[in-house]
Write a protein that binds this DNA or RNA. Structure first.
Lengths: 149, 149
DNA sequence: TGAAATCCTAGAGAAACGATGGACATTGTC
DNA sequence: GACAATGTCCATCGTTTCTCTAGGATTTCA
């Protein structure tokens, strides 16, 4: 049930682009250096995202990438589908990439996979890049030394 | 986000064992033939399940495998963890197989992965082999010809 | 004794993963 | 116009993982 580094890198890049609305286009090099992603590999990822209509690119000096839509309209699920393929754990319960199975329809597992898929999609298709830009709440409260001592 | 055939085969084998409570031990050959699983591959899978305490084996002629516990006490999540590894999509949100990540704790993605993991676990750890033995409700109602003609 | 099983180890073959490299086209700046 | 920075495109490559195969040793029962 692993997410590939490809999706991980792609999401990081989109978060980076969404957080830098002030500037026009960001080069892949800058994103790669910030997030420790091999630049040439990142280019491939961004190219895939461009073909999917998620980012736009600008060639030439001072070129780079920018979001093709507001970050609120790009879901994590869409990004992962582009980079990693289907979200469903098996083909027989996928709508985007359905593959028949010899044991359908009387298959005890199909129900399990369908529920799993629904659970995954419920999270990934409801979360947008904008949601991911909000820093998470701190896990621990740091208790400051009191001045009473 | 794929489930491997290993887990698929393992779950099928367990469903098969759970559905045949009358007999003592079932040989891997019988399960493999019924579910189109290569027998030698299935042996490896059943060995892993044995080491995990999910099935028991009996060596020798008329030997085979049986569940080590009632099917109601074996969850799909446990089986998949044994055969496929962790259920979490990335190591940084796994409790069974935690791996640190350089961007913790201020990582926008961690929250997403944690929610995804929770959603997956919510399904897989709540479903038992016994649940999977119940045939799913028919998708379509077949309307019988009435005798009125 | 022999057939039918599990047990154990090794490894082949293919696919996926995670990059790397180079040539080329485009753009902005000096 | 030269040049540097950038995206585009295509090819390749090493490693790991997945799926399955192979062969033999051991145990058990009739």
């Amino acid at each position: 049930m692993n997410i590939s580094t490809k999706s991980e890198y792609g999401l990081r890049a989109l978060i980076h682009l969404a957080s830098n609305t002030g500037r026009e286009a960001l080069p892949a090099r800058e994103i790669g250096e910030r997030w420790h992603v091999p630049v040439k590999y990142l280019e491939q990822i961004l190219t895939a995202l461009k073909e999917a209509g998620i980012v736009e690119s600008q060639v030439g000096a001072s070129g780079g990438y920018r979001l093709a839509r507001p970050a609120t309209l790009i879901t994590a699920g869409e990004v992962i589908r582009v980079l990693d393929g289907r979200l469903a754990p098996v083909g027989c319960v996928s709508t985007y990439d359905y593959e028949p199975c010899e044991f359908e329809p009387a298959c005890g597992l199909k129900t399990l996979w369908a529920r799993t898929r629904a659970a995954i999609i419920g999270v990934l298709d409801q979360t947008t890049i904008a949601d991911l830009c909000i820093p998470p709440k701190p896990q621990k409260l740091v208790v400051l030394k009191t001045a009473s001592k």
